[in-house]
Design a protein around this nucleic acid. Structure first.
Lengths: 197, 197
DNA sequence: ATTTTACTACGGAAAAAATACGGAGAATCG
DNA sequence: CGATTCTCCGTATTTTTTCCGTAGTAAAAT
């Protein structure tokens, strides 16, 4: 559902107002800002915007408009533990939560892992970085995945060849892991990275 | 549950009072501050704010109001533009905002830049990454900074030597920039990185 | 223990804000 | 062109907010 120019103007006005004041404008304020002679006009825009999912309207509440965009910019996902060649993901026990910008997250469930080691350094993934992982069991060639091989969890680039699976590190010093299809279990796809200096 | 203008004013007054004095105002003080003729009015606001979760009221206790610290785990900072050797930061005009986990942000103001080019790739900073920058004009040796040299903005590691400033790229193919002290203007310190695959 | 001070609990009422509904001209699209 | 959507208007109605006053209860001070 696309927005018309005027509709976007109305939405932008509401969004800006919320950002500035911490509360939404009243319908009358919207009316006056755009010079409408009737509140019905404002009502119509609100209806379009809400049914389209751009706006949330807390019904019958004063200043109850909330642009979807301002609502949730980040989400909390669990930081499950460390990942490195040779060390399985630790238990979820005292799982910290970490805040992640939503634009990294698509559909599905996500978790985060702290990268240990330099095995992916040529892809700009360094020791200590937080990798954002989408939970899934399939992958395309070339994607960076969390894979379990031989009871060990590792972060590598995934390549499926005709008769084998190859897990490539991004480090000249290290060799790819080459294994049979069924010995490799994919636990997730890397969708983002967060680093703090 | 959204706040009306007046409700937010009352909440802000209470919050500010607590910040200044370490304890909350009495209801009568609130009444006088807003010029209400009845305590009932104050009561009403307290009720709205508490049921909405903005305020905690230790019932029947004097000065028992406590603004619930709205837990902010992410913050919006402006994405000012691109940064690359040779290209100045573009105008702030249509500055997008980007959501950043607060643990990256300390005190001070921050902004974000989109990295162009490979000049810092050996430090795991790749083309397309978002660099989170703290606005400051000083830096320690070895820190990654946004610096303006010769009207060009660039992201480099900063080293101050006895008689000169060196800006080191992290790329074997590129040489450090060596300049005089006064020809180098620091615009910010890199404090974090966000990458989306 | 009594008084004072601060907090609660209603009920009522005016004002402000949000909805419902019907209609109508302009723009867009097949 | 005809149908649909977008844009806008006007009025009537409902709901919420805001404020008041009075009476009662709990805590603190004397």
């Amino acid at each position: 559902m696309a927005l018309t120019k005027k509709q976007k103007e109305v939405l932008d006005f509401i969004t800006g107002y919320v950002r500035e004041n911490g509360y939404s404008p009243t319908q009358k304020e919207i009316q006056e800002h755009f010079g409408f002679k009737s509140l019905g006009s404002v009502q119509d825009y609100i209806k379009y915007l809400t049914t389209g999912g751009y706006l949330n309207n807390d019904s019958h509440s004063v200043r109850g408009l909330m642009p979807s965009a301002v609502q949730q910019n980040s989400e909390e996902i669990p930081l499950l533990g460390n990942i490195a060649a040779g060390i399985p993901i630790e238990a979820i026990e005292n799982s910290d939560m970490i805040s992640v910008p939503v634009h990294m997250l698509g559909k599905g469930s996500h978790y985060a892992l702290k990268v240990k080691g330099e095995s992916m350094k040529d892809d700009g993934i360094l020791n200590g970085d937080i990798a954002i992982i989408k939970h899934q069991t399939q992958a395309e060639n070339g994607q960076i995945v969390v894979a379990v091989v031989d009871n060990e969890t590792t972060l590598k680039r995934y390549f499926k060849k005709s008769k084998q699976i190859e897990l490539h590190p991004a480090n000249e010093m290290m060799k790819p892991i080459i294994i049979k299809d069924k010995d490799c279990e994919i636990r997730g796809l890397m969708v983002g990275l967060i680093r703090t200096y």
